[in-house]
Write a protein that binds this DNA or RNA. Structure first.
Lengths: 217, 217
DNA sequence: TCAATAGTGTCTCTTAGACAATATTGA
DNA sequence: TCAATATTGTCTAAGAGACACTATTGA
């Protein structure tokens, strides 16, 4: 009964930063619809297994990519009779952040391949309305950082202030002024100095920081 | 099969400004579940009638209150097995704006009564998770105005700059500085001066403005 | 010493908030 | 003229951006 119950799904834009560049995870679909097309990872809600849409997104992501995600944020819900060939459907979109050092995702069930792509220069034609979804997710992430949130979920457990700045620059797609950036985050309670720990190299050592225990992006 | 298909609904926080105070529309439910309780207006998605969730919200609102709404904005989608006694459900929340001079809504089908209430001092115990939904909707509306958007949908076709300021003050719940407010909106393309038209009274006349044709909140 | 990056200081310009001054009407 | 509200001007403090300066290490 396509017209009685809509298809309820979640889609996730999983972001990471590799080599100072923002990347989003795309998957190549093994099954219909859109078999062989690239898309954002996503899947159908299972009320018998999921406690919420966010829970469903988490489960779908784990099954498709074998990675566990520390942070999910809801972006929006799209809907309509034509966005999925299977009929009237709604999809709740999330974006997620993954530290670069955990981004060794592998293809899981129902997936032919995965790839970390530049979210602004799509090298694949995306299935369904996923071009628009990716745009919405990136925009939501940027707005959050624009408003001063620190994307610490993209970083390893210990990081330098320069690392934080580089992550923000990768997200925003532009260079940030070092002094202004540090002034902004100077009194940020999310940042905890790790006493006595420094990143060393052939230059002045950089103080290590960590996310505060209660930190939420 | 409650566990196979979730119940898909929309809920709407419809705001207006009466006598310089922000008000939200609440309805008293005539049917189960939560018969006799007050709640945000909302209803079940009908894929055979609705072209989108927003369309569904619009339809539900028209049926319940006999008012047609010029603006709907999606806030978020909530979900889970326990938020509605009928079983696993999802609800997409919208907020909407209605000009004060069109706020003569009447109770429609499935509604016992309606009331315009202070969204911050609930005089009724709300059904389901609607206290939280109302809080989310109000917060989303305030953030939008905080970022400089002008809630012209709350105003009649022609209005003065003081009217705009009063609407913003009602939403934000605090007084705004007149000079600063006018500086901010001075070059706002959404505002069009109506030449030669003034609000007159026992004081200096106030210039009338209207929303630009392409205006979207 | 030098190269390289960390971290800080300074200057300017913009803007928000507070507050005051001026403008224009009807009565 | 007066009361009342519209509209504009001024002062100050805070913050962002640009840029340069100092600090500290390994080699």
């Amino acid at each position: 009964m396509k017209t009685l119950f809509p298809l309820v799904t979640t889609d996730i834009a999983l972001f990471t930063v590799k080599d100072l560049r923002l990347r989003v995870l795309l998957v190549k679909r093994r099954n219909d619809p859109s078999h062989g097309f690239w898309a954002l990872p996503g899947g159908i809600l299972r009320p018998d297994q999921d406690y919420s849409l966010e829970d469903s997104a988490q489960r779908v992501l784990t099954r498709k990519t074998k990675v566990n995600i520390p942070y999910l944020a809801q972006v929006a819900t799209v809907s309509g009779p034509n966005r999925d060939p299977r009929g009237w459907s709604i999809s709740t979109l999330y974006y997620a952040l993954l530290p670069c050092n955990q981004a060794a995702a592998v293809a899981g069930d129902t997936i032919e391949a995965i790839q970390w792509c530049d979210p602004e220069i799509p090298q694949h034609q995306l299935a369904f309305d996923h071009p628009r979804l990716l745009e919405m997710a990136l925009s939501a992430l940027r707005q959050k950082v624009e408003r001063g949130a620190l994307p610490l979920h993209l970083l390893p457990a210990k990081f330098t202030l320069t690392d934080v700045q580089h992550a923000c620059e990768a997200i925003m797609g532009r260079r940030l002024d070092k002094a202004a950036f540090r002034r902004q985050i100077k009194d940020e309670p999310a940042l905890q100095l790790v006493p006595g720990e420094f990143l060393r190299g052939p230059q002045r050592p950089a103080q290590f920081y960590q996310a505060a225990p209660a930190f939420q992006f």
